[in-house]
Simulated assay, not measured.
Amino acid sequence: MTAVVSAPLAANILADVPLADEVNLSGQPLALNGAGIRSKFFMDLYVGSLYTTSPSQTLDSVLQAPSVAIRLNIVSGMITSEKMQDAIIDGFNDATGGEPQAIQPQIDAFMALFSAPIIEGDQFTLEATKDLGVTAYKNGEKQATVEGEAFRQALLKIWLGDKPAQKSLKRAMLGE
């Protein structure tokens, strides 16, 4: 099944990635809140962007929103499925204070999204909806939905929590 993920022409470009001003997921328009670059050892890895129903500058406002989306645009051939899985496992560890056991079945289901090869130019969109959980899209195609509010919150905290993947990326996604 192919999902319709609209992306109007973007005025914003970051690391050669055009950023849509708005995305429409599950019939819910979400506006670009902020975007930044995830880098490591001076290499750009991906552009991370946050889409929300209304401007959000704090983790709490994002967690309280009925629907938000995080989009990752891969800009480096250095990212492999294995490296992405390792980074996400580390992210869930940090997001749960080192105790991901309560949501381990959801983490395992989510990790399947990153089992296929990842190439430069791939785009992952993670729609986090309070009543549904997280629906993942790869290159615009719906992959899976992982249910659970605790999982949804932990996933968002990977990028926006107290121990984010990268502090400057968190600030940029929150529009600071």
Rank of each mutant, 00 (worst) to 15 (best):
D60K: 12
T58A: 04
K170L: 10
T2H: 13
L30G: 02
I118P: 03
I74H: 01
S49E: 09
E141L: 13
L113N: 13
F110G: 01
I79H: 02
L156C: 04
L72H: 04
Y137G: 01
S39Q: 06
E147T: 15
I74E: 02
A15L: 09
A65F: 11
D16S: 15
G148C: 07
I119G: 14
I158N: 00
K170P: 03
G140A: 07
S76F: 09
L174C: 02
L132A: 14
V5D: 03
L155C: 05
F42S: 11
L19E: 01
A65M: 09
Q101Y: 07
K83F: 10
Y137Q: 01
Q64C: 08
Y137T: 00
D162I: 10
F151T: 01
A172H: 03
L169Q: 00
P100V: 08
Q85Y: 07
V75E: 01
A65T: 07
L59N: 01
L14N: 02
D122E: 02
Q166I: 08
T80Y: 11
G148S: 02
P29I: 13
P66K: 15
G121W: 06
G34W: 09
T80W: 11
S67R: 14
M84E: 05
E82N: 11
S61V: 10
F114L: 11
D21V: 13
I103A: 00
V146L: 07
S61M: 13
A35K: 03
T96Y: 06
L59W: 09
G97R: 00
T125F: 12
L14C: 04
D44W: 08
Q143R: 08
L25R: 00
D108A: 12
Q166G: 06
S49H: 05
Y137E: 02
I158Q: 01
E22P: 05
M84C: 05
V75Y: 04
A65H: 05
G97M: 06
D131K: 12
T125S: 15
V5Q: 05
A69R: 01
F41Q: 08
K130T: 15
A69K: 02
D131N: 14
Q85D: 09
A116H: 08
R171T: 12
L174V: 04
R71S: 14
G34P: 03
G27Q: 04
G161Q: 02
Q153G: 10
V5W: 11
L126H: 03
S76D: 03
R171F: 11
K130V: 14
G34L: 07
E141G: 07
S54K: 15
I158L: 06
Q143M: 12
S56Y: 08
A69Q: 03
G121I: 07
G27N: 04
I158C: 01
Q28N: 13
I37Q: 00
L59H: 04
S54R: 14
P105T: 04
Q28F: 11
A20V: 06
L45C: 01
P55A: 14
A11R: 15
K163I: 09
T145S: 07
G148P: 03
A10H: 06
I37S: 01
D60Q: 14
A15F: 09
L113S: 10
T96Q: 01
T80Q: 05
N33D: 04
A15Y: 10
A116P: 07
Q28I: 15
M1S: 14
L14I: 15
G140W: 11
V75L: 04
G175L: 10
Q123K: 14
A35Q: 02
N24K: 14
